[in-house]
Design a protein around this nucleic acid. Structure first.
Lengths: 252, 252
DNA sequence: TAAATGACTTGATCCTGATCAATATCATCT
DNA sequence: AGATGATATTGATCAGGATCAAGTCATTTA
């Protein structure tokens, strides 16, 4: 019990200026003094465990959240008890932006593994951004980027084949892991096949079959949640729609 | 030639404070003095004709635009020459928000009919919003609303049947026309069947067949672009997924 | 260590909506 | 008014991926 203090959450608090994620996060592009000011409003609480909710649809909105470690799934519960997965979020990513519009959450966010976050009380952020044009600018950029990302997702769901969807999904993680200093070709996915399928508008079975097919084609090696991408160029070809593994399939 | 002046575009300029759309638009929630200040940066140019581009993907971004009359389609040209329609925009709606992130347009916007817009130079808007907290707040809200709307579209494309998609589409227009003081049940769609299908992730033929089926079921009356919604409650049922016209189809 | 539970995989079949093909209708433009 | 090309409708067929149904594997619980 005495060693509790050593790992107490107070001790793991980190300031933005010392945070490795600051180049991906709100402080991006801010002067050191501005980062200090931003830091004063940020709250760092205890980690969430797998399955814990950061917030739920209909909760009153008070803070944006930045993932600092772990990963988070956002989703909207839909009428008939099911859910639509809206995104998977990695360290450095800001969530809750959709709640600004009417001051309450429209979707839910749940930790997929042990996850730490910074909370950014929005009313304070708003006041601060009035005083700090660079912060205001960064907020506009982040909101706009979110819109752009959702737009890409619309294109994916509107037009792309199952194969293109999964390849896009895998490469998105590849790139995001790489940005964060991890291997772009060897990583663990923290979500289930079911969640992947839901996110991509595919049935679980289709996702499972695609993993198998991609593996048979030598594009990747998969062992449950552990994925190793073996042929990134080919995966990029698939995303573009300029390549398909089907031809090879039928040749065999 | 002499009567040119009478209808010259100079004469149709309108200030925000006199504009019927101000409750839907940027000035929403601003004090009269703030609206005046906002008005000073807004440019009102000559109308676009059907097929004219307001901007194209890759254009440098300088202004947000508010539709004041007519309608606009936004789309991303994709690799293989095709396009993905991202949205249809009616008077009062703000477009170009996705371009803030990196100062250039990622999608194109084209007039579907004779269309007038207000241009809002973004750098000026940004400066002004630093000075006017209520304007900043409104910007955050509008950006967040856009995110929320795209989220709804993700759910539509990820899970809904063709029938649910078209019903959702029609009711979206119904509500938006109603907000603008037009009939919610009798309107003209300015886009082609092809564009509707593209937007909803459906083939043209499917859209055409659905219109026919909806008409046969007495849900609506359609004559090319002229649509009359005859049974709004039933259409809402279809959107919820709690109703389907298929049962009736097979009964006949 | 066994049983139970949940996640994943694999196979067989079905169905929605895509694609292909043939008109039909509309909007321009001389 | 008639010719032309775009747009829309309708029909027939096809296929991608969903659904249904077992079965396998992994992890937790007892």
């Amino acid at each position: 019990m005495t060693n509790r203090k050593v790992v107490s959450f107070e001790n793991i608090k980190v300031a933005c200026k010392n945070c490795s994620l600051s180049t991906l996060c709100l402080p991006m592009g801010l002067s050191p003094e501005d980062v200090e000011r931003l830091d004063t409003i940020i709250k760092r609480g205890r980690p969430y465990h797998r399955g814990d909710h950061l917030y739920r649809g209909n909760d009153k909105f008070h803070s944006l959240r930045v993932i600092t470690s772990g990963s988070v799934k956002t989703y909207t519960p839909n009428e008939d008890g099911g859910e639509q997965v809206l995104g998977f979020h990695l360290p450095g990513e800001l969530i809750g932006l959709d709640a600004i519009q009417d001051n309450h959450h429209n979707c839910s966010a749940v930790a997929l593994e042990t996850t730490a976050v910074c909370e950014v009380p929005f009313s304070q952020l708003e006041s601060l951004s009035s005083l700090m044009p660079s912060l205001q600018h960064q907020m506009y950029r982040l909101l706009s980027r979110e819109i752009g990302q959702e737009t890409e997702m619309l294109t994916l769901l509107g037009k792309k084949s199952a194969e293109e969807r999964l390849a896009t999904f895998l490469l998105s993680f590849s790139e995001r892991f790489k940005q964060r200093g991890f291997s772009p070709s060897d990583f663990f996915l923290s979500m289930s096949r079911h969640e992947i399928g839901n996110y991509l508008g595919l049935a679980v079975e289709t996702v499972s079959r695609l993993f198998t097919r991609f593996q048979d084609e030598g594009l990747l090696q998969v062992e449950r949640k552990h994925v190793q991408l073996l042929d990134l160029p080919r995966l990029y070809d698939i995303v573009q729609g300029t390549d398909s593994i089907k031809s090879n399939q039928s040749r065999v």
